[in-house]
Design a protein around this nucleic acid. Structure first.
Lengths: 156, 156
DNA sequence: TATTGTTATACTCTATAACTATA
DNA sequence: TATAGTTATAGAGTATAACAATA
C-alpha cells in the first residue's frame, strides 16, 4: 500500500485522499448556507440560465427520481429554484435557478472552486503538470455528457 | 469556466469531475456487497489488525459520534466488525474487523483502488506525471494524520 | 467536572412500489 | 402502453440534546 507498482493506482489513491480531506469544507459550506449537502450539490448542478429536467438532475445526483421531488421541493420553498412544465411535453418539469438561487450558487461555486491546500500549495510547474495530466485524462475518454445513474438498486 | 487562469483551479475542477464520475461505481459496489454507502465507507476506513476507537471513526467519517453507534451496530450485527472496551479507559470502544469483515473489505478495496477510466486510459508517462504531481502535493502539506471533524453543526 | 459512547428525537436522503398525468 | 414526476412507505444517515458509565 505504501507504493503500488502502477502509477495510475497510486495517483488514484492520492486523489481519493485529497477528496476526503476536502469533504469537511463542503459540509461547512452547506451548513453556512443553510442547505443540506444534497441540496447544495443539487444547487451546484443547476447552471444559471439553463433549464434542466428533473430526471436529468436525478441522473447527475446518481439517485432515484423520487428523491429529487423532495430535494427540489425544499429548494423551491426556499425560493432558490423554480419548476415549470416543459412546453413540448407537459410531463417534464424544467428546473431553473431564481435570482436568489443563482446568487447563492455563485457564492458556493466560488468557495468550492478554490483548490484545497494540497493543490494550492504546489509550485506553479507542478500545478501545470497536474492540470495537463488531468486535461489529457479527459481527452482520452469520450465525454460522457449527462452523467447516467447506474440503475439504482439498493436498500430502501 | 472553460479555462480558468489558475492551473490549480482547473486541475481541481477536473479532479472533481473524475470523482463525480466515480460515484456510481462506489454505489454499485456497496449495493453488490449489501452495504449502505456509509457502511462501506466505514468498513474501508478500518484497517485489518488495527483497533480504532469509535470517536476516531467518527472523525474519519466527518460525522457526529452519535451516528457511528448506528453504523457500527449494523456492521456488527452483520458480523463484519466487533467492538470491545479499551483496557486503559473503559469508556472507549475499540473497533476491529472480523475475518469476514476483513474479507469483504479486501474485495471492496481491490475494486475501489482500480483507477477510473479517465486515469487508466492515460499513457504511462502521463500517469507518472499525475502521480508525481500528487505525491509532491502531499509532500507540501504537513500530513494531517487522523482526519478531524469540523465541529459538525447542521440541520438535524 | 469532563469525556466516550448511547439513546431519544426530528429531519433529510434514499430506494421501491403504486399512482397521476401526460404522451 | 410507456414515461415523467409524485406520493406513500420504510430504512438509513445526520445533528442536537439528554443520559449513563467512566475518568
Amino acid at each position: 500500500m505504501a507504493s503500488p507498482k502502477d502509477p495510475a493506482q497510486e495517483a488514484w489513491e492520492l486523489l481519493w485522499r485529497i477528496m476526503q480531506a476536502h469533504k469537511p469544507r463542503f459540509l461547512a459550506l452547506a451548513q453556512e448556507l443553510g442547505l443540506s449537502p444534497a441540496q447544495l450539490h443539487a444547487l451546484r448542478l443547476l447552471e444559471p440560465g439553463v433549464e434542466l429536467p428533473m430526471s436529468s438532475l436525478a441522473g447527475r445526483l446518481f439517485c432515484d427520481a423520487s428523491n429529487v421531488t423532495g430535494i427540489v421541493d425544499r429548494l423551491e420553498s426556499r425560493g432558490l429554484i423554480e419548476r415549470r412544465p416543459a412546453a413540448q411535453d407537459r410531463r417534464v418539469k424544467l428546473l431553473s435557478l431564481t435570482d436568489e438561487g443563482a446568487r447563492l450558487r455563485e457564492i458556493a461555486w466560488r468557495q468550492m472552486s478554490r483548490p484545497p491546500a494540497e493543490i494550492a500549495a504546489l509550485p506553479l510547474e507542478h500545478k501545470r503538470a497536474l492540470r495537463d495530466a488531468l486535461r489529457s485524462a479527459f481527452d482520452q475518454v469520450a465525454d460522457a455528457g449527462d452523467a447516467q445513474a447506474p440503475t439504482p438498486t439498493g436498500r430502501g
